[in-house]
Design a protein around this nucleic acid. Structure first.
Length: 641
RNA sequence: GCCAGCAUAGCUCAGUUGGCCAGAGCAGCUGAUUUGUAAUCAGCGGGUCGGGGGUUCGAAUCCCUCUGCUGGCUCCA
């Protein structure tokens, strides 16, 4: 007998060789039906794999992330089986589960697979799923595996096997139906678990993620244990399309691009610019409260500046090349960062420790060469404005400054209606120290300061090794939007490198010179990217204080235009902004247009209202909310914001 | 940058296997209508079919190329 420890701490005895599925059945059949795989001693196993020793056990279902991953990984195998049936001779790269489904990289041997082929592939997958073929785990020696793939002629799998040989890893194959794949597993018990299937996209992907190697075809899909879940998923995709900031940006006239101006160079239209301005003003006020000083620096700087900062060496080739003066040939770069300029500001006079921390902020517009294929609406552009600041402080002040920034960021996110967020701590990859500059002790001190500050601020954190910048560790805020999607927003980065390169110093209480520490931080990240996320989060229904137009006054006929104009002025006195729709249209039409433009309040004025000095108030998306005087509406408005 | 796909009026889209002056709805303009909670009616204007080159008697339609866009990959100071 073996002891199985359950997540609640209970221990039960089972016969050696039992499986997670048997155990689930012993608890309840309803549960057993839902089990996809199981965590045995922290490792995810097939639910049907025998357990021979004492173990902790956690049954995994669709509700567990690992359960989903098992399900999708099995789905990738199912798709591979279908592809092999439809395209004989096809070769396989890797086919993992992802956060939102799965994919398989294939070498189609000259065939092209396009989305037109999806129905055919989906149908084949359905057919194979209905056969309820078991996923059979087959431990095998590496030589046998190599022989198998040599015969099959799949050089990708052979390469993977060679790698495994170096690692000395155990090899397993999994078979379902006629399809055999090199795989660690685990898998769901049989293909019948996969009920709803949808292939989502097809794209090129480099073998092993290396752009110098063969490009394979990556087919993406998603599957569900129930048809209903697929329907929900498709609804979510539809909703995301409706909220796409590129679509809403055009419809609401927030921003535009022009082929003539250039790719990735957004231009803000009046309404979008108002929104952007309000966000910046909000942040200006919050920063002023926290001791920041605003500065303004030019859009270009001498090449030497970036040679000093080290950016030229690292990014010179892959950024916009220098522009030069006509006579002297002196070279300037469009600034890709504000920090070198800010370092010069710090260095313009000697500093005492009494000056620190010095917090220099700027809404700095920067230009970066992004590969053309990377550009995407406002979220990835070549010219954008960072809500940047650099804090110069002493080593001892580091944690306090971090807490100050965390407080600012939390204030900003809360104000924007992002309820859920986590902080990602990015540290060095201990395996590749050569990728980072700066001393080991500095790195350790900085990493510890971040960890301590986030703990003290009570943040939810995840830690990622190897995600640090080359000059220091960082903390990124990941927010969840209204559709449950995660986005990376603001960032806080410690930098021991630039102060060194710019030889920044201050005089301490000991009358010795010391090197300050520098913190880069941007709560929004960039105005462009932040607004793109805000648009999708709100679906264009911005918080009242940000709405470009807060009301539309809709006169029933032009006889009431005069009263409407008067109301507009009165509301302006209350700092409520909007416009009068005095077109010769019916109210129904005016309401529709205001609804589509997502104007928060529609104020209908006709005979009754003009006589009584009132407004008939309609709320966007909600409909009629009753009649009130201008003063009453102003009060109602304040209470709503 | 790479792979795949797309580009027809301001917007959303029709346009059969190459073949009459390239269409519709919305938006715009003009006029009529004076309107009560999501689209009033009529008329008019608007396109070198993304740019360039080629094949053909003939190209929006086929080929090449450039530009831009979309989805991934790689990258992201």
């Amino acid at each position: 007998m073996i002891n199985i420890t359950f997540p609640d701490g209970n221990v039960r005895q089972y016969e050696a060789g039992t499986t997670a599925m048997d155990i689930a059945k012993s608890i309840s059949h309803g549960l057993a039906k839902k089990v996809l795989s199981a965590k045995i001693n922290g490792e995810v196993w097939d639910a049907t794999r025998p357990i021979h020793e004492d173990a902790t056990l956690q049954l995994l279902t669709w509700d567990d992330k690992d359960g989903k991953m098992t399900f999708w990984h099995s789905s990738a195998h199912l798709m591979a089986e279908a592809l092999e049936a439809l395209y004989p001779g096809i070769k396989f790269g890797t086919g993992p589960a992802t956060d939102g489904g799965f994919y398989y990289d294939v070498d189609t041997d000259g065939h092209t697979i396009s989305s037109d082929d999806f129905p055919k592939i989906e149908a084949k997958m359905q057919e194979l799923a209905r056969q309820k073929n078991e996923y059979v785990r087959k431990p095998i020696s590496i030589d046998e595996a190599i022989d198998f793939y040599k015969e099959k002629g799949d050089e990708y799998k052979l390469e993977l096997l060679e790698k495994r040989r170096e690692e000395g890893a155990d090899i397993t194959l999994y078979q379902q139906g006629d399809f055999i794949d090199l795989c660690r597993g685990p898998h769901v018990p049989h293909t019948g678990y996969i009920k709803a299937i949808k292939l989502t996209k097809v794209a090129g992907a480099y073998w092993q993620g290396d752009e110098n190697r063969q490009q394979l075809t990556r087919v993406y899909g998603i599957t569900f244990p129930k048809k209903k879940e697929l329907d929900l998923y498709e609804k979510m995709i539809e909703e995301a399309k409706e909220r796409d900031h590129r679509k809403l940006g055009a419809e609401l006239e927030l921003f535009m691009f022009s082929e003539r101006v250039g790719q990735g160079l957004p231009m803000w239209l009046p309404k979008g610019n108002q929104l952007r301005d309000r966000l910046m003003n909000f942040l200006r006020v919050e920063q002023e409260k926290r001791g920041y000083k605003l500065v303004t620096t030019p859009h270009i700087g001498k090449k030497d500046l970036y040679v000093t900062s080290g950016h030229y060496e690292k990014y010179g080739e892959d950024s916009f090349h220098p522009i030069s003066t006509p006579r002297e040939g002196e070279e300037f770069l469009l600034k890709p960062m504000n920090c070198p300029h800010h370092c010069e500001i710090f260095a313009h006079r000697p500093h005492s420790y009494r000056d620190l921390p010095l917090r220099i902020a700027e809404f700095g517009t920067v230009y970066r060469y992004e590969q053309s294929g990377e550009l995407h609406g406002l979220s990835r552009v070549r010219g954008f404005t960072q809500d940047d600041a650099h804090i110069f402080c002493t080593q001892e002040q580091l944690k306090g400054e971090f807490l100050n920034v965390l407080d600012l960021t939390k204030t900003v996110l809360a104000k924007m209606g992002f309820e859920e967020f986590t902080a990602q701590i990015s540290l060095r990859d201990p395996e590749t120290p050569e990728k980072y500059i700066g001393s080991k002790s500095n790195w350790e001190a900085a990493e510890q300061a971040i960890i301590d500050a986030t703990k003290e601020a009570g943040l939810n954190t995840v830690t990622e090794l190897g995600e640090a910048a080359f000059y220091g560790p960082k903390l990124d805020f990941m927010v969840k939007d209204a559709l449950g999607r995660s986005w990376q927003l603001g960032t806080i980065q410690v930098d021991y490198n630039l102060p060194d390169r710019f030889e920044l110093e201050y005089v301490g209480a000991d009358n010795e010179t010391h090197r300050p520490v520098m913190i880069h931080r941007a709560p929004f990240g960039s105005m462009e990217r932040f607004i793109s996320i805000l648009i999708e989060h709100t679906g264009g229904k911005f918080p009242l204080w940000l709405a470009p137009e807060q009301f539309a006054i809709l006169p029933i006929s032009d006889r009431f235009n005069e009263y409407a104009a008067k109301v507009e002025q009165e509301l302006a006195q209350h700092d409520i902004r909007g416009f009068v729709d005095d077109r010769g249209e019916k109210v129904g039409r005016k309401i529709r247009d205001a609804e589509v433009k997502k104007v928060p309040f529609m104020l209908i004025v006709g005979e009754k209202e003009t006589e009584n000095g009132t407004l008939s108030v309609r709320k966007q998306g909600d409909g009629d909310v009753g009649t009130m005087t201008v003063a009453e509406f102003a009060a109602y408005f304040q209470q709503q914001s």
